[in-house]
Deep mutational scan, measured.
Amino acid sequence: QGDIVVALYPYDGIHPDDLSFKKGEKMKVLEEHGEWWKAKSLLTKKEGFIPSNYVAKLN
């Protein structure tokens, strides 16, 4: 089961498979690959890669 993270900063995706998000948006982490994680937005239901240093895990 994936962790839920919250965006600390907004992110505008650079690549087509990036997931753009707004500050405060919550996402479910699907896979962790070093600095880039695959996640699904709980708001938009879209999936893509996010920079892990832009988010914090919720406990």
Rank of each mutant, 00 (worst) to 15 (best):
S20P: 09
V6Y: 11
A7T: 03
G13V: 04
L42V: 06
G13K: 08
V5Y: 14
M27D: 00
K22M: 10
S52I: 09
K46L: 12
L30Y: 07
E35H: 15
I50P: 01
E32T: 13
L19N: 01
L19S: 00
P51G: 02
V5M: 05
W37V: 11
I14N: 10
E31F: 09
D17F: 11
S20F: 04
D12R: 13
E25G: 01
D12E: 14
I14P: 07
P10K: 12
Y54S: 06
D17W: 15
S52M: 11
L8C: 11
K28D: 05
K46I: 07
L43K: 10
T44H: 03
P10R: 12
F21T: 00
S20R: 07
N53Y: 09
A39T: 04
V29A: 03
V6F: 08
E31H: 08
K45F: 15
P51C: 06
L58F: 10
V29P: 01
D3C: 15
F49L: 10
I4N: 03
L43N: 07
P16T: 08
K46R: 12
F21K: 01
E35V: 13
V29W: 01
G24Y: 06
K38D: 02
E35C: 15
A56W: 08
I4F: 08
D12V: 14
W36V: 10
E35I: 13
E32G: 10
E35L: 14
V29I: 15
F49T: 07
K46Y: 06
K45I: 06
H33Y: 12
D18V: 08
G13D: 02
S41P: 00
K38F: 15
V55A: 04
D17M: 10
D18R: 09
K40F: 11
G48H: 00
K28E: 14
P16G: 09
V5W: 13
K38L: 15
G48S: 00
L30I: 10
G34D: 07
Q1Y: 14
F49I: 08
K46T: 06
L58E: 08
V55I: 06
H15L: 09
V6Q: 06
K57M: 09
K23L: 08
L30Q: 05
K22N: 07
G48T: 00
G24R: 03
W36D: 03
K22A: 09
A56S: 11
F49W: 15
W36S: 06
Q1T: 15
Y54R: 09
V55G: 02
L30S: 05
G24W: 07
K23W: 06
F21S: 00
Y54D: 02
S52D: 05
K22V: 12
S41D: 03
A56H: 10
G34L: 05
A56L: 11
P16S: 09
L8E: 03
L43V: 11
S20N: 06
Y11R: 06
K40D: 02
V5S: 02
K57F: 14
G13E: 04
N53G: 11
K38I: 12
I4D: 04
K40Q: 14
Y11T: 01
L43S: 11
Q1F: 13
M27Q: 00
P51I: 03
K22L: 11
V6G: 02
K38H: 08
D17G: 15
L42E: 06
E32W: 11
K40G: 04
N53M: 09
N53H: 13
Y54W: 06
D12I: 14
V5R: 02
S41T: 03
G34K: 06
E25V: 02
S52N: 08
N59T: 11
G48W: 00
Y54V: 05
T44Q: 04
K45P: 03
